[in-house]
């Protein structure tokens, strides 16, 4: 353990070694240099305004802005979430509630053994720190750049699984449906499933 911590070298820094900074105070500046401040404010009046008129103009966020969460899917539509609750454990604000359940061949939401049956994020508590995203072992949970999350009631700000799930894209099927034929969850994990297989279409 102590290998990683560099021991403090004795006498490296002592109070007496540190030199004082020379501070020079020559009293007030002459009148002209004092007046320059007035020019600064006057000239600033004609500069371009920095304000973004928010509701009318929306500037794009930073690329990796921490916005609303999203529960991702594999490319055949199965959910990535395995209901492990690591995100809930990682959450410093206790904003995430997860209830896992077992997959069965008749009712399969995600590859592997388990899936997240209940998934709630309370946006009144969430501090958007992103620790849940770091904790997620399958990259099921990521964050979007969406930041307009205000609402009228407390209840509306507890997002359910339906609110958080990523939409189905082309080639995806709405689970529950079986896994891609002749694959295991490892194949899924390695991102080897690029699209759904006709045999998976049991619901549609």
């Amino acid at each position: 353990m102590s290998d990683h911590i560099e021991p403090m070298k004795k006498k490296e820094i002592s109070v007496n070694e540190v030199e004082f900074a020379q501070i020079e105070q020559n009293g007030p500046k002459n009148l002209f240099s004092q007046m320059q401040g007035f020019w600064v404010t006057f000239a600033t009046m004609f500069k371009k305004v920095n304000t973004v008129s928010y509701p009318e103009v929306k500037e794009p966020t930073a690329e990796r802005f921490h916005g609303r969460h999203q529960l991702n899917r594999y490319d055949d539509g199965l959910e990535k979430c395995i209901g492990c609750e690591l995100c809930a454990w990682a959450c410093p604000a206790d904003a995430i509630y997860v209830e896992g359940a077992a997959n069965s061949d008749e009712h399969r939401m995600s590859p592997g053994e388990r899936y997240g049956r209940v998934y709630q994020i309370n946006y009144l508590r969430c501090i958007f720190c992103g620790l849940c995203i770091e904790a997620c072992p399958t990259r099921a949970l990521t964050m979007t750049n969406e930041y307009e999350l205000a609402d009228e009631t407390r209840a509306k700000l507890i997002f359910e699984k339906d609110d958080l799930l990523a939409p189905l894209r082309a080639g995806m099927l709405m689970p529950p449906h079986p896994m891609y034929p002749n694959t295991t969850d490892t194949n899924y994990y390695k991102n080897e499933i690029k699209s759904s297989h006709p045999s998976q279409e049991v619901n549609n």
Partner: peptide, 15 residues
Amino acid sequence: LPIKVSTINVSTGKK
């Protein structure tokens, strides 16, 4: 006093 003393001049004096 610390051993190495540089003056901190806060009056209106010169450096």
